[in-house]
């Protein structure tokens, strides 16, 4: 399943599996997850955050891109799941 969606902080509480890997992109320079949400109690208590499964993707990986972008993204996924 894939798709686009948006939510606010409390919407994340529906993700209860600590095995979820949370990848995000912050290529535009503002890292809302590291800066804005760092001290947020909801964010800190999320199972996957507590388990340290939050990963900032390497800047420049285009999530809407073509084959080259997909390859970079796959490499990123491999490094995330094997780390």
């Amino acid at each position: 399943m894939w798709g686009l969606g948006q939510t606010d902080v409390e919407g994340l509480t529906t993700i209860t599996d600590d095995n979820v890997r949370f990848l995000y992109s912050a290529s535009d320079g503002t890292d809302v997850f590291a800066d804005g949400l760092r001290d947020n109690p909801i964010w800190k208590s999320l199972p996957s955050v507590r388990a340290g499964h939050v990963h900032r993707m390497t800047d420049g990986i285009w999530t809407f891109g073509g084959p080259a972008s997909s390859e970079q993204f796959l490499d990123e996924l491999v490094s995330v799941f094997t780390s």
Partner: peptide
């Protein structure tokens, strides 16, 4: 605690 967190943080 979860309820309190949602209340306070969101």
């Amino acid at each position: 605690e979860g309820v309190a967190r949602v209340l306070v943080a969101s």
